[in-house]
């Protein structure tokens, strides 16, 4: 009867510290299934990408079918596997306030992948971008140059 379940054999190597955090999250919910979204976020922010082998781990922790975990994960915003990524907000305000210029400037920087995202919630301080999850808003050409130069 369980032939339909994907093989959960390919298990990720879970660092102890990560496993402890995961168990603490699961324990905070009356039913383990409730922890699914926080655990997905934990995996995504710790590993930087969605590798299918994690689905089995999350599925086991939450008592959810592996396919369901996969399906939900793939419906979420997933970071790309490789390279540094900068998410430039292209919501209405940011577009009007110069997201295009931000994109163009960033495209000149090597080894950075630029993606346009919907809204970073910094509308009153447009334009904005997020780098490694850190929000930078009120961007001006000077600030942008400083940000880019600061790292390189």
């Amino acid at each position: 009867m369980n032939q339909g379940r994907p093989e959960a054999a390919a298990r990720p190597v879970v660092p102890e510290e990560l496993a402890d955090r995961a168990h603490a999250i699961v324990a905070a919910y009356p039913e383990p299934k409730g922890a699914l979204h926080p655990l997905l976020d934990l995996v995504l922010s710790e590993t930087g990408s969605w590798d299918g082998t994690w689905a089995g781990w999350v599925a086991q922790l939450t008592g959810t079918p592996v396919v369901t975990v996969h399906g939900i994960a793939r419906s979420r915003r997933l970071p790309e596997a490789d390279g540094e990524e900068i998410a430039v907000c292209t919501g209405l305000s940011c577009r009007w306030m110069g997201a295009e210029a931000v994109c163009q400037r960033l495209q000149e920087v090597p080894n950075i992948r630029v993606v346009a995202v919907n809204c970073l919630g910094a509308c009153s301080a447009a334009p904005a971008m997020a780098r490694n999850g850190r929000l930078h808003d009120g961007l001006t050409p000077e600030r942008l140059d400083a940000l880019v130069a600061g790292d390189r």
């Binding site: 915003r77 430039v88 577009r95 009007w96 295009e100 994109c103 495209q107 630029v114 919907n118």
Partner: peptide
């Protein structure tokens, strides 16, 4: 001048 497009080369993600 302002209601511009994000360059086509930029991947859109939501």
């Amino acid at each position: 001048d302002l209601s511009m497009k994000v360059p086509d080369s930029i991947h859109m993600r939501y």
